[in-house]
Design a protein around this nucleic acid. Structure first.
Length: 493
RNA sequence: GGCGCUAUCGUCUAGGGGUUAGGACGGAAGAUUCUCAAUCUUCAAACCCGGGUUCGAUUCCCGGUAGCGCUACCA
């Protein structure tokens, strides 16, 4: 009598089950996000499960990196498990399958190395002799201490097919004759991924398995395990893979840190922008929205919107600037989200980054500066370069030639600065008065407004490209402004 | 090799038997402005190929091609 999963409450239970064998990959992050969105959208439960049955390859560093990445995303989860704590359940499940005659001991030594792996001619299905080993002989050899793996006895008679319906890819079927007798238990007694994953999914009453498409063909094996263990398989939804511009799947070895979530964090991405970007890879709302908040995404998310083709993360392979490290759309979305933030909020996020380099900057100061750079930064870290002149006492050296205005010369720069020194000494440092005073001064000197503003801008900012002049001066204050203009006048000599 | 999946502008995608094939990023041009941004306007840019079904296919079917995945006592 198969136990019925997922129907009793109607509330979905989903899980994200990473293997701690490396940092949190952007593809994994997307899988986590889709699961989370699905759970929240349908008032279900989000489960985090560490699939750490491969003791050889698991590391604590990886576990930490995964938590670090997930913490930054800030989405959270409702239940947490580690497969290594649940080995008894896995073994019990495996042996229950064995007892039903649906699995058998294979005493063949493990295939070593990569022999006949990728270039294999023909498909390996099972080791000769083992599948039909008489029960008594099997028991005897096991009792004598001989090592064995436990394999699933895949039904491979003509006409045997395994089927399931994928929420994304539709009806799937495969002949049993094309499925190899996969292992359930290794010869050291440890469960394999397939077994552990299914045993846990059943035990945790997972209703929907939302995961990467690399598992689509594994799902036939999983259906076999669920049914052999007496459970109704959950609903499956496979996600198209994220690939590099060259079409190969994202890997640390080939593509470096671009595939790590923490790289986005450290570059100054907003987690909500990163999430927004990832959602648009392989999923779309049916309207034309692109910039979406977490709550909008939660509201809009559905399995039906998931696409079937792999999605390219469009970064430049040899990146010549930090910006090129990322997909242009991710960068744009980040800037969009930054622009959409309230000044106080943005300022708070900028402050720790700024303080790392300029410890004297206060929260009050940052609030004044933030509106001037909000439209000018693409990454949080850009505040460091966009507003540097607010943070330093003394401007770093700049080329005095920069002080020379368009269609002007050194003497014009000097006249403008000297005039500015006088005018600014007698004006209130507020936007409008500064505006009026400096425009009037330009008129008196017979120069264009732009010719008046540029030398002042360079004198106070140390460069030509900067925020609006009046608001800059207002925030900078009279004292610093006059000091920097004096320095600039010295430079014109 | 076997099995499975996929194929719309450079990229992410919408659409769907009859459309000027829509949007976004990026690119180009222009407007605005004290520079840079931001903003606005405009432009260029796509249905993998071949058969079939049909009055009509980019859309449905078949084949090809290409890409990806699985083919481990990894996950």
């Amino acid at each position: 009598m198969p136990e019925i999963l997922n129907t009793s409450s109607g509330k979905p239970r989903v899980r994200f089950a990473p293997s701690p064998t490396g940092f949190l990959h952007v593809g994994s992050a997307r899988t986590f996000i889709f699961n989370w969105l699905y759970a929240r959208r349908n008032h279900g439960t989000m489960i985090l499960r560490l699939d750490d049955t491969d003791v050889e390859r698991n590391t604590d560093a990886s576990v930490n990196s995964i938590f670090e990445g997930l913490k930054w995303l800030g989405l959270g989860w409702d239940e947490y498990y580690r497969q290594s704590d649940r080995l008894d359940l896995h073994r019990k499940t495996a042996w229950s399958i064995f007892e039903k005659g649906l699995a058998y001991r294979d005493f063949t030594p493990a295939r070593t190395g990569d022999a006949e792996k990728s270039g294999a001619q023909g498909t390996w299905l099972f080791n000769p002799g083992m599948r039909d080993l008489p029960r008594e002989e099997s028991e005897r050899r096991a009792a004598s201490g001989e090592q064995f793996a436990l394999r699933f006895r895949v039904p491979r008679d003509a006409g045997e097919v395994v089927r399931f319906t994928d929420a994304v890819y539709g009806e799937q079927m495969k002949a049993g004759a094309d499925i190899e007798d996969f292992a359930l238990l290794r010869s050291d007694g440890m469960p394999t991924y397939h077994l552990a994953s299914c045993a846990d999914d059943a035990d945790l009453k997972i209703s929907h398995i939302i995961r990467g498409q690399d598992h689509l063909t594994n799902t036939f094996k999983h259906v076999l395990i669920f049914e052999a263990a007496g459970y109704t398989p959950p609903q499956f939804a496979h996600l198209p893979l994220l690939v590099a511009p060259d079409g190969t799947k994202l890997s640390k070895r080939r593509h470096g840190p671009v595939v790590s979530v923490t790289t986005y964090r450290d570059a100054g991405f907003l987690p909500e922008a990163f999430i927004n970007f990832l959602c648009l890879l392989g999923w779309s709302p049916k309207d034309d929205r692109t910039k979406m908040s977490l709550s909008e995404l939660t509201e809009m998310f559905s399995l039906e919107g998931i696409n079937r083709a792999n999605a390219v993360v469009n970064f430049k392979e040899p990146a010549s600037s930090p910006e090129e490290t990322f997909d242009p759309k991710a960068v744009w979305l980040n800037a969009e989200h930054i622009r959409g933030l309230a000044i106080e909020d943005l300022s708070q996020r900028l402050l720790p980054i700024v303080q790392e380099q300029y410890p004297n900057v206060t929260a009050e100061r940052m609030i004044e500066i933030t509106p001037l750079i909000r439209e000018r930064i693409k990454f949080l870290r850009d505040a460091l370069t966009a507003a540097d002149f607010f943070f330093v006492d003394e401007l770093p050296p700049y080329d005095p030639a920069e002080l020379i205005p368009q269609k002007g010369d050194a003497s014009m720069a000097k006249r403008v600065l000297e005039k500015a020194q006088i005018v600014l000494g007698n004006v209130e440092f507020k936007h409008d008065p500064l505006d009026h005073a400096l425009r009037a001064a330009a008129q008196e000197l017979g120069v264009k407004a732009g010719q008046m503003f540029q030398p002042i801008r360079v004198a106070v900012c140390g460069r030509k490209n900067a925020p609006g002049l009046f608001e800059t001066l207002e925030v900078l204050g009279k004292e610093t402004t006059l000091k920097r203009i004096t320095r600039a006048i010295q430079k014109t000599r």
